[in-house]
Design a protein around this nucleic acid. Structure first.
Lengths: 134, 134
DNA sequence: AAACACGCAACAGAAATTGATACATGACGT
DNA sequence: ACGTCATGTATCAATTTCTGTTGCGTGTTT
């Protein structure tokens, strides 16, 4: 797969699950249909579980299932659960020597932060049920 | 510097230039104030030049300057000039074996494409003069 | 002619991500 | 109770992407 495909994989999986809720799916099954590895699936879905979007159980008839209805899960929930920050840099604020440069740097960071917020707002307007091929 | 900082560097540089248009700045000078390398600066600014946002000249008193006024340069211009696609994946469409999976994959890609468009729309609403610390 | 700055190619190093193997933990079925 | 199955986590290799750097050619100015 291509780099940074976590969001794509998550949406694909959730969309797949939304097509048949209540059904428990194993990471091996999901990985096969997504063309990747079960461990990669568990890595991504683990974050979604921690955010309360999914639940999982070990054991013989274990696997993964939706913790909410598809229309209750927005793309913003997924994006934030994965801790993605595609626009704004993760970085800390190390003050620059020149105060003018420092002010400009803060300005740029502020603008990117606002764009990031705008992106999340946009994502919040779409839910998994919109992605699911019904 | 941190990975994928091209947009940040570009905005920083343009904001710096907007603070004093008409002034010709060398890549060495810009690099010093941005805390990076002259070649890196030329790499990024070269794309902006190709997009018509900047101009440059070789020679003794050469360097870089704005090709437009700061309010005529939107963040979307910069983003597109850098060929960034932060949300939607660059990828091609390789049809999957299962038609259901293929349809779902297309649906996910379509949603991400729309989010990408929305991001550019948002960027188009801000100009370099808004970033410039006046 | 010399100094200067862009433009481009090539390469090393760092960082992030994916893919894969191994193994412990826990749950279910017989 | 025991074997099976699936999650959860750690670890490592391979790939990719990006930055930082050096070198050199081209063109302009002094």
């Amino acid at each position: 797969m291509k780099p940074n495909s976590r969001l794509s994989l998550a949406l694909h999986t959730l969309g797949h699950m939304a097509g048949d809720p209540e059904k428990v799916q194993t990471s091996a099954y999901i990985a096969e249909h997504a063309g990747t590895n079960p461990v990669v699936v568990r890595r991504v879905l683990g974050r979604l579980k921690k955010a309360g979007l999914l639940d999982s159980e070990k054991g013989h008839s274990g696997g993964w299932w939706l913790a909410k209805t598809p229309d209750q899960i927005s793309l913003a929930d997924v994006y934030l659960a994965l801790d993605e920050r595609m626009v704004a840099s993760e970085g800390k604020a190390e003050p620059l020597a020149c105060s003018v440069e420092d002010a400009l740097h803060k300005r740029v960071s502020g603008v990117l932060e606002e764009v990031e917020r705008s992106l999340v707002e946009k994502l919040a307007k779409t839910s998994i049920s919109d992605v699911c091929a019904v």
